[in-house]
């Protein structure tokens, strides 16, 4: 039994003492040592860390796809054990996450049908979100007829149409080319500000994390702890050219870069990291 945790009511997603040990064949592997953080309603928080830092494990625990070994994840105060209502996930592997036997529109519509929305509302949401991601004229295509970037747009539209309270994104742009990635980053920012949804965005790309996030959670290497919760003071309006050229962006980039490098060397706290800048 976990004791009830008294939370600030504005906390949308609360993670307390999260620990995850994989006990498969062979030695048990501790992926996450101890993680605690809170995300307020309407925040856009990015999670970065060195590769193998348990980022995907964390996201799967948040999504209720993977049971935690200890500690808990709470969505609006409710403990998450199975995938909760009000959460949608965008996976990195769009090609495997979309169903190839359904058209783009059917892919977006299926979760809405499962949610029990009436037909008229479903059609409306499908049209609106596909237009919002710039795919208003691809509704009758099949995912495999589209480019990678377009397929990931479909997955984003599917998640957005679901109208979740929390949108989880697991390295969604790792497999798309650099130019497409900039467009998709701006798409995420605009959907976020328009829908008022809480977003947790996992990435290995430091620049992407700073450009997108209001906060960046920097993770240590395995077994994972939180190295630092970095506030990003870049304002609400961001542009690929100007924001990335500001001194604040450069400062944050240097700072997070140093933290991630230190994490690779095994640093487990900011004081361990011996930052030089």
């Amino acid at each position: 039994m976990t004791s009830p945790v008294v939370e600030n009511p504005s906390v949308m997603l609360g993670v307390h003492g999260l620990n995850k040990v994989y006990t498969g064949r062979g030695e048990p592997v501790e992926a996450i040592a101890d993680l605690s953080f809170e995300i307020s309603a309407g925040e856009l928080v990015c999670v970065v860390g060195p590769s193998g830092a348990g980022k995907t494990t964390l996201l799967r625990c948040l999504a209720g796809l993977l049971p935690a070994t200890a500690g808990d994840v709470r969505l609006a105060g409710q403990a998450v054990s199975d995938p909760p209502t009000g959460m949608a996930v965008v996976f990195q592997e769009y090609g495997r996450s979309l169903f190839p036997w359904l058209t783009v529109a059917q892919n977006v519509e299926l979760p809405l049908r499962e949610k029990g929305l009436p037909k008229a509302r479903r059609k409306e949401l499908v049209r609106e979100t596909l237009e919002a991601v710039g795919l208003g004229d691809a509704t009758a295509s099949y995912p495999w007829q589209l480019s990678g970037g377009m397929q990931q747009r479909v997955a984003i539209a599917r998640a957005a149409a679901y109208e979740p309270q929390v949108l989880l994104m697991d390295e969604p742009f790792a497999a798309v080319d650099a130019q497409t990635r900039f467009d998709l980053e701006d798409l995420v920012r605009s959907l976020w500000s328009r829908l008022g949804v809480t977003v947790v965005f996992v990435t290995h790309d430091i620049d992407e994390a700073i450009y997108l996030g209001e906060r960046v959670l920097v993770l240590s290497g395995r077994p994972t702890v939180l190295l630092e919760d970095v506030r990003v003071g870049l304002g609400d309006d961001r542009s690929q050219l100007e924001t990335r050229a500001t001194p604040e962006f450069t400062r944050l980039r240097t700072h997070v870069y140093e933290l991630v490098q230190a994490a690779k060397r095994g640093a487990r706290s900011v004081t361990d990291a011996h930052l030089t800048h």
Binding site: R60, A63, G64, L65, D82, P83, T85, M87, A88, V89, F91, E93, R96, S97, F99, L110, P111, E114, K115, Y162
Partner: peptide
């Protein structure tokens, strides 16, 4: 596919769906 399966689970698809 495990990713497709995770997708179905995360959208809370019923067993029949």
């Amino acid at each position: 596919d495990p990713v497709a399966n995770d997708t179905a689970r995360s959208f809370r698809f019923s067993l029949m769906t």
